[in-house]
Design a protein around this nucleic acid. Structure first.
Lengths: 88, 88
DNA sequence: GGAATAGTCAACCAATTGATTGACTATTTA
DNA sequence: TAAATAGTCAATCAATTGGTTGACTATTCC
């Protein structure tokens, strides 16, 4: 769903269409994504249009980036420690 | 668990210690993280030492980054379209 | 203005998850 | 060498999740 929403916004029905589940089930899933802050739903007449919420995905990326950053820091620290051993 | 492992590697028991659950439950959770590619477990004697697997977290970051990137691309496209309107 | 469409909600049930406990294996310590 | 420690696994049960169905509301179309 997220991948398809990255191409363009779409209604709940359009999002549900390729999925082998009922509209109600798809609606439920969309509700979970909305609750997680990954998408937004906007009412337009009888249609609800869904769109990605970049803030939610930025939060995920930033969260993961912190760990990648930590790892690199630890590798750097190891590198420095090894250099110090070499200088002795 | 991931946050604490970003500080230093630790055994299953040490990871489990601050959690209000049985050792078996914590072991289960660690198994899930391992299966997800986020951590690795290495046997050292009777101890299993856990460490972050940067590749797993890089994959998560990259996945989220793609969506942030898509979003920015769409904003850029909108920007260009609006400029074209202004030039008319 | 009624039929059709879009979507949600509650009730229900099956499947999965989350946690515990006891039993077990492997390793370390006294 | 036996006790202690570290950790896993299977069985069990409660809680949660995932999906369907029918009923409903809101909006659009004929």
């Amino acid at each position: 769903m997220l991948e398809r929403l990255s191409q363009c916004d779409m209604t709940v029905g359009a999002l549900a269409e390729p999925l082998e589940m009922s509209l109600a089930a798809a609606s439920k899933h969309i509700g979970v994504l909305e609750e997680a802050g990954l998408i937004r739903r906007q009412k337009r007449g009888r249609e609800r249009v869904c769109s990605l919420d970049p803030r939610g995905l930025e939060a995920v990326r930033d969260w993961a980036e912190r760990y990648v950053g930590f790892w690199n820091e630890r590798l750097d620290a190891l590198d420095r420690a090894l250099k110090e051993l070499d200088d002795e």
